[in-house]
């Protein structure tokens, strides 16, 4: 079971997590004359408190997924594959049909969903332990087949739910509960850069890395997510977006300091930007005709 050792109150994902949302509902937005409501909860996001720790970026990523599902009018035909980790309770927050996947297998489960029901919009939402360690084969091959899926990859360099163990993306020198002396390159290898790897695969139509450490980066990340969604809705291929995220609890940092760490330590190692963007046209019949055609390249990489 997950352990919250130090750090702010809320335990990361436990019973309390799934517990009933006793919190007051958000005040129904009233708009007075001369003003407009410019920021409120998207309809697809449940009106309940999350189980996430203070300063955890899952909440931001969840909100942006929900916003895009609403803005792109996809929520009603979406089936999500949730993964294992803190975000296993995705279905408590994002109100779309969801099936729980075994650890790392969300891209395979999502493949099954999309092949079975090609008219649905399908996404998985996975952390770094799930996607880049135990689920490496599944993510690589789903991308390589060009499955019409979107994967939201939250990289916070630790296994959050189980108590902050070393992840495949843990930075060199970073201390975790299973590399207490700091990650050593000779013993534990280097942090894996997933966006760069996924961009190399033939079926990937869009691949980018954003960050959730600043308002500017969050807004940019949402643009990337939109493009990753569109890679699927336009039938171009596999859409992938990596989000550098904070885990203040397991980093033993305050939320503000955690954001600073992303800026100063993570972004230099995990550079932000678009790694692959296929130009394609949804009207290209052969490209989108059947799921069985997956894998066809839509155009040249930029």
């Amino acid at each position: 079971m997950p352990k919250a050792k130090s750090a702010p109150k809320a335990a990361p994902a436990t019973k309390a997590a799934a517990a009933k949302p006793v919190m007051a509902k958000t005040v129904a937005p009233k708009v007075a004359a001369g003003e407009e409501l410019v920021f409120t909860r998207p309809a697809s996001l449940a009106d309940r408190a999350t189980h996430y720790c203070p300063g955890c970026h899952h909440g931001i990523a969840h909100r942006m997924v929900a916003e895009l599902l609403d803005e792109m009018d996809l929520a009603g035909r979406t089936v999500a594959a949730s993964s294992i980790g803190c975000s296993v309770f995705l279905y408590n927050y994002i109100q779309v049909d969801t099936v729980e996947s075994p650890h790392g297998r969300a891209p395979a489960v999502a493949t099954g969903i999309k092949r079975a029901r090609p008219d649905t919009f399908v996404f998985s939402y996975q952390g770094d332990g799930d996607l880049a360690s135990i689920g490496m084969a599944e993510i690589m091959h789903a991308a390589n087949r060009g499955e019409r899926l979107t994967v939201v990859f939250v990289n916070n360099t630790v296994y959050g739910m189980t108590g902050g163990q070393m992840a495949p993306t843990t930075l060199i020198g970073q201390k975790t509960t299973t590399c207490p002396g700091g990650r050593c390159k000779d013993r534990e290898g280097s942090p894996i850069r997933m966006a760069e790897i996924i961009a190399q695969l033939g079926g990937t139509a869009f691949c980018a890395r954003g960050s959730l450490d600043s308002v500017k980066n969050i807004r940019q990340a949402k643009k990337y997510m939109r493009q990753a969604f569109e890679a699927q809705t336009r039938g171009l291929g596999f859409g992938f977006v990596e989000l550098l995220s904070g885990c203040p609890t397991n980093w033993r940092l305050s939320p503000v300091a955690a954001n600073k760490r992303i800026t100063e330590e993570m972004i230099p190692y995990f550079p932000l930007g678009v790694y692959k963007e296929l130009e394609g046209d949804a009207t290209c019949g052969s490209l989108v005709s059947t799921g069985a055609m997956a894998g066809g390249a839509a155009g040249e990489s930029k």
């Binding site: 958000t26 005040v27 937005p29 708009v31 007075a32 001369g34 003003e35 407009e36 409501l37 410019v38 920021f39 409120t40 909860r41 996001l45 408190a49 999350t50 996430y52 203070p54 300063g55 955890c56 970026h57 899952h58 909440g59 931001i60 909100r63 600043s214 308002v215 969050i218 807004r219």
Partner: peptide, 15 residues
């Protein structure tokens, strides 16, 4: 509101 992880802030803007 954009950086709030908990959807705890709503924003109204004067036209």
């Amino acid at each position: 509101a954009t950086i709030c992880p908990d959807m705890a802030i709503q924003v109204w803007r004067s036209k």
